[in-house]
């Protein structure tokens, strides 16, 4: 890892954060808005995991677990947008 690469990652994280803020300000609910938020969240998470934490050089066990964690929220954003009602129906307690 070099200082220049770290700084570039930080700048990219800032741009992606401000993109998210603009979406929070103006976006209406919709499939592509949800996908965009999920993609931005995934990229930001991956930058932290690979560049800041340097897990791309670490034990594959640690790397896979943390990268997997970074995918849970983005995946659930899209899944619950597409199948929210079905998931709600099957997760209700009977009676």
């Amino acid at each position: 890892m070099t200082a220049a690469k770290l700084t570039l990652s930080w700048m990219l994280l800032m741009v992606l954060t401000l993109s998210g803020t603009l979406m929070g300000e103006y976006a209406q609910p919709g499939f592509w808005v949800t996908v965009s938020v999920a993609v931005i969240t995934t990229i930001k998470g991956r930058l932290i995991i690979d560049q800041f934490m340097e897990l791309n050089h670490a034990s594959p066990v640690i790397r896979r677990i943390v990268r997997g964690f970074g995918l849970i929220v983005p995946a659930l954003m899209i899944l619950t947008y597409l199948y929210g009602q079905k998931l709600a129906a099957i997760t209700q307690l009977p009676g």
Binding site: T21, G24, T41, G45, I48, F52, G70
Partner: peptide, 18 residues
């Protein structure tokens, strides 16, 4: 960094995702 990573997940869930 892990605590930062968690905040990056919380931020869109409460402040962004309509």
């Amino acid at each position: 960094h892990a605590t930062d990573l968690i905040w990056l997940m919380i931020f869109p869930l409460f402040y962004v995702l309509p």
